[in-house]
């Protein structure tokens, strides 16, 4: 946990303020609301580091004779999020991954990426019982799980400041080793994304 948290902080700190939005080596941050299984509320913070920017020609337009160029950003993502189930537990998720963000018209964009990371559950009021049925005082306990998953996002940058955007995200995480198998977690996020980079004149 400590190592991944330090990695997350490092990712958050090493930004390159020389370039504008979506320039290579630039960094973007996101903060927002996170929801697990459409019911359990939480929060998320993420950082996205633009590894590479490239253009892809749209085949459909080529056929019509009007080739269109779609700018794509490949980003390294780091995310920390939590949600709590009011009845039972808190989950903390820490994920890293690669995401391709495809920029569209009218400042809109959509992204698709893969994630790997860790989840930690915190269970309240846990009584540990030994073989002789001695009961401990209640405490907090929980489990570590590895997770893998994918993320989809839709976003729109603001007109006046294209550095900032509103992003709706969907993540499907698969917690590995949860009880006796794998369990899916469906998560929705609504984040405000911003960049510390100053807009170039």
């Amino acid at each position: 946990m400590r190592v991944t948290f330090v990695l997350f902080l490092c990712l958050s700190m090493f930004s390159n303020p020389l370039h504008g939005q979506y320039e290579e080596n630039s960094l973007r941050y996101g903060l927002g609301y996170w929801q697990n299984h459409f019911a359990n509320p939480g929060a998320t913070a993420n950082a996205k580091y633009v590894l590479k920017t490239y253009n892809r020609k749209k085949i459909l337009h080529l056929k019509k004779g009007t080739p269109a160029v779609v700018p794509i950003n490949r980003m390294l993502t780091g995310q920390i999020a939590f949600h709590y189930d009011p009845f039972s537990h808190v989950f903390l998720h820490n994920s890293y991954g690669i995401q391709n963000r495809r920029l569209g018209k009218k400042n809109r964009f959509r992204g698709l990426g893969g994630l790997l990371g860790f989840s930690k559950s915190f269970l309240p009021e846990v009584y540990k019982v030994d073989n002789a049925l001695n009961v401990s005082d209640p405490g907090i306990s929980g489990n570590w799980y590895l997770h893998a998953g994918y993320a989809l996002e839709l976003g729109k940058s603001f007109k006046r400041n294209t550095n900032n955007a509103f992003v709706v995200g969907f993540q499907n995480l698969f917690l590995i080793g949860y009880n006796s198998g794998v369990t899916p977690f469906l998560n929705l996020s609504f984040t405000y994304e911003f960049s510390p980079n100053k807009k170039e004149p």
Binding site: A43, F82, S88, E125
Partner: peptide, 29 residues
Amino acid sequence: AVVICFSSCEQDDPLNTEDILYVERNGAQ
């Protein structure tokens, strides 16, 4: 948020209790 969550999990009215607790032994809660 974690503190608020944990502190709200228990209701004290003994006639209308709403408790969630976990029992931990041999690899399971």
